[in-house]
């Protein structure tokens, strides 16, 4: 009926440490860098070696589940970040990029050994293309449709890459940082007509 695990143990074997995981992945696939921060292991890979890393995770590191897949948009340019440094003592954080990147993050998890790691891959935001992970983890199907919907990343080899949460005829990819939150200026002072959402021309706003 139930099991009594000791803290942090998997269902079958004890977990691999972050160092062991990083070592095994860098040994298996070339051109991979690893980073440990905030108690989590991140593996940075190039798009070419993404599937090789995911396959290594699944077949050699017992990561039978793809827990999560999400995107983050880092646009090009200098980003001056407004901060209230007077209230905190943390160091300032500045981003400067010569090309925009859409970073896609895969969280792979092992239930049998109870470890997880993050695989991070970047792709250019002007023409974002990545290989699809649906052949390795079928659950990536919905996740990749979501990332395509929100960031415009084309996953090559995906069986049905269509919008999933936004309407089919939506223009633009809403989670990109160059996509505004609103869409119309709201000015209540001068009896201005505010168009309902389906009559707004978002192309003006995005371009």
């Amino acid at each position: 009926m139930s099991y009594v695990p000791t803290r942090g143990h998997g269902l079958i074997d004890p977990p691999l440490t972050h160092d062991e995981l990083a070592q095994r992945i860098t040994d298996a696939v070339e051109g991979v860098t690893t980073e440990q921060a905030l108690g989590e292991l991140t593996v940075h890979v190039e798009p070419d070696s993404l599937l090789a890393v995911l396959r290594t995770c699944k077949e050699e590191l017992a990561c039978e589940m793809l827990a999560d897949l999400s995107g983050v948009h880092w646009p090009a340019g200098d980003h001056v970040i407004e901060r209230q440094s007077s209230t905190t003592g943390w160091p300032s954080y500045r981003v400067s990029r010569d090309r925009g990147v859409i970073e896609v993050l895969y969280i792979v998890r092992s239930a049998s050994r109870n470890h997880r790691l993050r695989v991070a891959v970047g792709t250019d935001d002007t023409d974002p293309v990545l290989p699809s992970a649906t052949g390795i983890y079928p659950t990536a199907n919905y996740h990749e449709r979501e990332v395509y919907d929100f960031f415009g990343v084309r996953f090559e080899g995906h069986p049905d890459l269509t919008r999933i949460l936004m309407p089919d005829d939506w223009i633009g990819h809403p989670h990109r940082k160059d996509y505004p939150l609103g869409g119309v200026d709201v000015d209540y002072k001068h009896d201005k007509y505010i168009p309902p959402p389906d009559e707004r021309d978002l192309r003006e706003v995005i371009d």
């Binding site: 921060a37 999560d68 209230q84 943390w90 993050l105 993050r118």
Partner: peptide, 8 residues
């Protein structure tokens, strides 16, 4: 403010 980083 929250220090920079990524968590899951």
């Amino acid at each position: 403010t929250v220090p920079a980083g990524q968590v899951y």
